[in-house]
Amino acid sequence: MITTLGPAQFLLLAQGLAWTLALSAIGFALGGLGGLVIALARSSGLKWLEGLAAFFIEVFRGTPLLLQLFIVYYGVGLLDLSVSPWMAVSIALMLHASAFLGEIWRGSIEAIPAGQTEAALALGIHYATRMRYIILPQALKISVPATIGFLVQLVKGTSLAAIIGFTELSRTGTLLSNITYRPLLIFGIVGLAYFAVCWPLSRLGRAMERRLTPAART
């Protein structure tokens, strides 16, 4: 039986979009926490900790997100915990986002002039206060464009959850295309839905970048 594209099908797509947004939000929130830890570890000044963080970043940047999803999905399955695909995907996205955000934020932390750290040390301000009140607020500000850029990557990346069977926007599209036999139309709509989420973010990122580097552009 061929189903036509009606309000019910659009409702399914809207639900898929909601899951996509939820996955992106979870990945970004958890990845943000993880990324902060990675960025601090990577610029901690302790050789072994920096090496460990660098290794973590290299591994996640040097392997496909799809494989990261597979490994976490099957890996947590081995732990005898009955973990839902939802949890597995969240964990994988969190690790992925931690590595990328960690690398972005490390760059911003290192971009803060060393004189500020030295001044803080001279004033006897210890590590936590120094990071919390002096370095991080400035570093996070310069990192905003790149962070938004990664958020767009992450939203697009959640589509890979479809391959391990998580019903978000892309998988909803696949399912609908199988019952309506209108793949061109369905994937067109799905693509536009992603575009509607990602494009404003991309534009925002670019606008922020221009605001932060006014002299570089004409």
Partner: peptide, 23 residues
């Protein structure tokens, strides 16, 4: 450029592979 950069690769490849045969 904007269209490609703001949609997932998975959807792009599905569009090409499953969508184009219908035309």
């Amino acid at each position: 450029v904007e269209l490609v950069r703001n949609t997932p690769f998975l959807v792009q490849i599905f569009f090409l592979f499953f969508g184009l045969p219908s035309i």
